[in-house]
Design a protein around this nucleic acid. Structure first.
Lengths: 214, 214
DNA sequence: CACCGATTAAATCAAATGATTAAATCAATT
DNA sequence: AATTGATTTAATCATTTGATTTAATCGGTG
């Protein structure tokens, strides 16, 4: 009965198709994806794709929006939390985000290669937390920097570094694994290590003043 | 005469077509690229594409191989130099590589999204310097770590961090610029700053021992 | 049983696309 | 002037691909 063909079930199959579409789209990108691939991957047939979703574009937009949420929300959401200290904020974000990336290793390449050029249109449609100066973590960082002997570095560098150290390994995973002779198990183990290492690195980067000859 | 139509000139136009192909391919990827786009971009017509290069695939493989050289050689080549110290090696690599990325901002996404899955076939065709344990810089790093009080961290992390901090900003550029309210000029200026910052960060990461509670 | 939405199967369309061809033009060379 | 290779123009082909349609089937509900 859980697999029958009643009215309630169209939610389930519709969801199955969406899941299949997500897998194929994130693996191959929009242009390289054939609607027939999605149909096959879903276990249903082509006609049913257009029965539920009217077009490839439409289906893609739905997927993209959800994946964009997944990609941005956990980071930007937590980054905006006014409760936690800078240090714990970073620890939480890194741990959560690396877990998410291990579950969705194709996500970064998908987002960043499909978003080429005009992110505004899509992003604005999704009500994400604000830009640079609205982010609470930037305010925290600004106060910390103003207070003392921290190196005077544009806070944007700090954000870029945090994202780089978390995300890039997954983007470069195939090449890195090849060049470094890593199998998937070793790679995942390294990523687990980075949950602790990255917050430490970020902290030392922030708190170590640059010598004069730099 | 430099623009006439003699025998020598087919080198020039063949090169122009390849350049056009490089631009379109790196901007849109293989699947989204139409041979007609390349023709238009090159200023020549479709028939001439197949006159010089027999197929889209063939043209793409030529481009991909060259771009792969560009993407890997400067890093892997310099990484293997036994002459320079670790510190200066890093400084040189970062400076050169960021310059190259400013010139070719689409290169990382292109390489890393087209290489999905099976890098071996392409990479092996290009005789690149060796893998993990053959790289001289890894030996240097290993000696340094064995010698003393450096944190005991897998050297692979060090490589990953170096590449992450250099490459990711260009991969995430559209999104970063959008979220951080940066125009292209500010972005490039930040990347220039990073030529000095990244070597410093890497060094502090390497030489700062982790406290016990980590 | 009769009805109904879900789903399939198969055929088909129209457009896009990679590739090829043939004839013409054009510029330099001989 | 004749030759030759580069390049264009335009037409055409075969496939792929997104989309639509129609008729059939299937399973649960009333």
């Amino acid at each position: 009965m859980a697999d029958g063909r009643n009215i309630e079930d169209n939610v389930s199959t519709q969801e199955k198709i969406k899941e299949a579409a997500r897998r194929v789209f994130t693996r191959k990108g929009f242009a390289a994806t054939r609607t027939r691939d999605i149909a096959e991957e879903s276990g249903f047939n082509l006609a049913l794709l257009n029965y539920y979703f009217r077009s490839k574009e439409n289906l893609f937009n739905i997927i993209m929006l959800e994946q964009l949420q997944l990609f941005l929300h956990s980071v930007l959401g937590l980054l905006n939390d006014p409760e936690s200290s800078l240090q714990t904020k970073i620890e939480i974000i890194v741990s959560h985000y690396i877990d998410m990336l291990i579950e969705n290793p194709d996500l970064p390449v998908f987002i960043l290669s499909e978003l080429k050029g005009d992110p505004e249109k899509l992003i604005s449609r999704a009500g994400f937390p604000g830009k640079r100066n609205e982010l609470f973590i930037v305010k925290q960082w600004g106060e910390l920097m103003a207070s003392g002997k921290l190196p005077q570095i544009n806070p944007v560098h700090f954000m870029i570094n945090l994202l780089s150290l978390m995300i890039f390994p997954f983007i470069g995973s195939p090449l890195l694994r090849n060049r470094m002779n890593l199998d998937m198990v070793e790679f995942k183990s390294l990523m687990e290590e980075r949950k602790k290492l990255i917050p430490f690195w970020i902290k030392t980067m922030l708190t170590t003043p640059m010598p004069d000859d730099y």
